[in-house]
Simulated scan of single mutants.
Amino acid sequence: MAIGLLVCDDSMMARKQLIRALPPEWPVSISQACHGEEGLQMIRQGLASVVLLDLTMPVMDGFEVLAALRSEGLTPKVIVVSGDVQEEAIRRVTELGALAFIKKPAEPEELRQTLERLGLLNPADSAVASPEPVPSRPAFELKINFRDALREISNVAMGRAAALLAKVLGVFVELPVPAVNIFEVSELHMTLADAQRGERCSALCQGFIGDGIAGEALLLFHDSEISDIAKLFNWQPGNDVETAEMLLDLASILIGACLSGISEQIDVRFSQGHPQLLGLHSSIDSLIHVNQRRWRKTLAVEISYSLEGHNVHFDLLLLFTEDSIQRLSHKINYLLN
């Protein structure tokens, strides 16, 4: 008899990769959900006795799904498959009842070993033909769009960056769902202005290039939060030079780890410039005016990090040049096929 399996993830690319990684002989009937609330409804309807659950999702995230399952007395066997690899995230999902944690993208052998360890897959099934036919797997005839794929790649990369930041600062980093858009400079201006909510800010950038893909990473800090960042670093900057040094250190951690996560997934080695200060205590208007020629039309990945328990939020934008889009699309298509 087929096991009811729910794959709950907001990314079609992630669901496709995960279903492809399932042991081919595992007799499962697969349902899919694109956010936690939809997945929870399917579990309530009895469609899933096993759940492969993402953490970073809109509407209801994976942490909230696990908490709801516990409060409602629902007992599917949950394996978390996530790009959020912070030690605290793994501890929290285990405490909430998840049976295992697998980092994205899931490797078929690791997934198989996890299923066998949990008694969900009989190792003998691979050696002996199943007496019942294995239900057919979903056919992914629909094309996964470029933005969804890049968003998922960025999601995995930002999770690795957050894990490093969490370890360095001793904090828990709350991760958003990344946004992917193609902006003219005027639209980028509006996006940045909205992100900064009218506050003065400090901004840093770091260029990168590799295999026909180039761009800049832009990191924005609200000035009102710099003192909180300094406390986390156990730093007491006495002047703007020392403040800039602290922010450059933080930019190196976040941007370097995020670009490394992307390059690993799409098999591109990026050469990275040194982080540079664009402006301290500046308005978005002045930053855009100074830099509008270099940004022009750009593919932007927006990630807004928050630190739990601290008044610290900062916005990371990966700005790819317009000329990079075709090459980036080619690399992503190769990854999917």
Score class of each variant (00 low, 15 high):
166 A>L: 06
211 D>P: 04
290 V>W: 09
334 Y>G: 03
175 L>N: 05
61 D>C: 03
87 E>F: 04
202 S>R: 00
90 I>F: 10
193 A>H: 08
145 N>T: 07
62 G>I: 02
242 E>H: 14
31 S>T: 04
176 P>S: 09
53 L>T: 01
64 E>W: 02
164 L>K: 09
15 R>F: 10
271 S>K: 15
175 L>G: 04
98 A>C: 10
326 Q>M: 06
225 E>S: 13
208 F>V: 05
140 F>E: 14
172 F>N: 13
125 D>M: 13
144 I>R: 07
160 R>Q: 15
92 R>I: 11
55 L>S: 01
331 K>P: 00
244 A>D: 12
206 Q>V: 04
224 S>P: 07
177 V>A: 11
267 D>N: 15
322 E>N: 06
154 S>T: 13
112 R>C: 09
269 R>L: 15
82 S>V: 04
167 K>M: 10
122 N>Q: 08
324 S>V: 12
141 E>K: 14
229 I>D: 04
49 S>D: 08
48 A>Y: 01
13 M>T: 12
41 Q>A: 04
251 A>P: 10
29 S>N: 09
71 S>Q: 12
273 G>R: 13
55 L>I: 08
119 G>C: 06
19 I>H: 02
178 P>D: 06
283 S>A: 05
27 P>L: 05
200 R>E: 04
152 E>M: 11
2 A>K: 14
243 T>E: 14
164 L>G: 04
153 I>C: 07
209 I>C: 09
181 N>G: 05
6 L>D: 00
329 S>C: 04
215 G>K: 05
283 S>Y: 10
106 A>L: 02
172 F>C: 06
226 I>C: 06
120 L>D: 07
45 Q>L: 07
100 A>P: 01
264 E>K: 15
187 E>F: 05
99 L>K: 10
8 C>F: 02
3 I>D: 03
21 A>M: 11
7 V>H: 03
28 V>P: 01
218 L>I: 14
204 L>M: 15
74 L>C: 04
161 A>N: 08
329 S>T: 13
262 I>P: 09
212 G>A: 13
23 P>I: 03
257 A>S: 15
321 T>L: 04
155 N>D: 10
76 P>D: 05
190 M>P: 00
5 L>R: 02
207 G>M: 12
84 D>H: 03
92 R>T: 11
227 S>K: 12
168 V>A: 10
197 R>V: 13
70 R>D: 13
50 V>H: 00
173 V>L: 03
262 I>V: 15
313 H>P: 02
226 I>N: 02
187 E>W: 08
315 D>V: 10
75 T>D: 09
24 P>W: 07
64 E>I: 00
120 L>T: 04
267 D>L: 15
17 Q>G: 12
9 D>G: 00
69 L>S: 07
68 A>H: 08
69 L>I: 12
51 V>L: 03
304 S>I: 10
126 S>M: 13
6 L>Y: 04
186 S>T: 14
54 D>Y: 01
18 L>Y: 05
296 R>A: 15
214 A>Y: 14
172 F>V: 11
332 I>N: 09
199 E>C: 02
336 L>A: 13
307 L>T: 06
116 E>Q: 12
210 G>I: 11
297 K>W: 09
56 T>A: 10
2 A>W: 10
145 N>P: 03
114 T>S: 00
67 A>C: 05
200 R>T: 02
84 D>P: 01
109 E>P: 02
110 E>S: 14
322 E>D: 14
74 L>I: 01
106 A>W: 01
147 R>P: 01
167 K>V: 03
271 S>M: 15
94 T>D: 12
